[in-house]
């Protein structure tokens, strides 16, 4: 019996198992347990949620391995962790902890303003953010096994996630309507490899799972993203920065499954308590917008 680990199929397949689910940011064991009990399909272990990173400023880095291992020990669902864009040593460290997925994330301060991590070098799969199709395909070309639209993390404002999902969807639909001989120029314009552009044109979807992230704060936000074609959602600050995290977490899980059923959505939207306060993306000065990190 020949066994192959770390193959593209195994990495991408892991993301297939997360579909229809909610991945929640957690900063300690207690939150991780609340997330698991609420039905999260995975947790993202990090020291500060994006809203706090935004509020406190400074350089944001990978989390302490101690903290990540405590969360791994506390829950049975997959555990993800973030590394800085381009910081392949942080990725080596996180991989050595046997984390289930690495998020090469714009929420942390980038370590390299030119290159992302060569993700083919790793056995652990990576998820990367994207604001448009070209960016998504460049990340896949570097070995990302899952894509999430970026949104604007730590705001509770869903408008950027919406814009990124619409952009990615529109660019995919455009490719599917093109003549084959037009795809060469399309690849040039998208700044993405021709082979991937051709694959998307033929299949009408990304070759990997597409989640959405950034600014999702309510069950209705989660369902909105699912109706926009997301395979699942990441919720960062939206849960544990709200009034009743356990209740809101469970409500978002239900809304992600029953995203087309307005009666269920109405039911789970009742009595959730205070949502995270939130910031309008328009009020954030452009240099402080996280979604613009990554290229």
């Amino acid at each position: 019996m020949s066994e192959a680990t770390g193959t593209a199929r195994v990495k991408r397949g892991m993301a297939e198992m997360l579909k229809g689910g909610v991945i929640m940011d957690v900063v300690n064991v207690e939150q991780a347990k609340i997330a698991e009990e609420a039905g999260a399909c995975a947790v993202m272990a990090l020291e500060r949620v994006p809203a706090d990173i935004r509020a406190q400023g400074g350089v944001a880095r990978m989390s302490d391995p101690d903290m990540i291992e405590k969360i791994q020990a506390a829950v049975s669902i997959p555990v993800m962790a973030k590394v800085r864009i381009g910081h392949f040593v942080e990725a080596q460290i996180i991989e050595s902890l046997a984390v289930d997925y690495i998020d090469e994330s714009e929420v942390l301060t980038p370590a390299d303003y030119t290159n992302h991590i060569d993700k083919w070098d790793f056995k652990v799969p990576f998820v990367c953010g994207a604001t448009n199709l070209g960016e998504a395909l460049r990340r896949i070309n570097e070995g990302a096994a899952m894509i999430r639209s970026k949104g604007e993390a730590g705001t509770g404002d869903v408008s950027n996630a919406m814009m990124h999902m619409r952009t990615i969807g529109a660019e995919i639909r455009r490719l599917t309507s093109m003549r084959e001989d037009e795809l060469y120029v399309a690849a040039k314009e998208l700044q993405a490899p021709y082979a991937l552009v051709k694959e998307v044109a033929e299949t009408g979807k990304l070759p990997v799972v597409l989640f959405t992230a950034g600014g999702i704060a309510t069950p209705a936000d989660a369902a909105l993203m699912m109706q926009m074609g997301a395979d699942g959602v990441f919720i960062g600050s939206g849960i544990f920065k709200s009034g009743n995290p356990a209740h809101r977490a469970a409500a978002c899980v239900k809304a992600t499954t029953f995203y087309k059923d307005a009666k269920v959505l109405a039911e789970v939207s009742r009595g959730l308590g205070e949502a995270m306060v939130g910031i309008n993306v328009a009020d954030i000065p452009v240099p402080h917008r996280l979604a613009d990190r990554g290229w």
């Binding site: 019996m1 680990t5 199929r9 892991m14």
Partner: peptide, 27 residues
């Protein structure tokens, strides 16, 4: 999660009902 975490996920040829098939094991 008997085979381990995601880094231990694998694909392998296995016998099933008299045929060999490519099996994908994920956590």
């Amino acid at each position: 999660n008997a085979f381990g975490r995601q880094v231990d996920s694998f694909e392998s040829d296995i016998e099933f009902n008299g045929a060999t098939l490519k099996a994908v094991f994920i956590r």
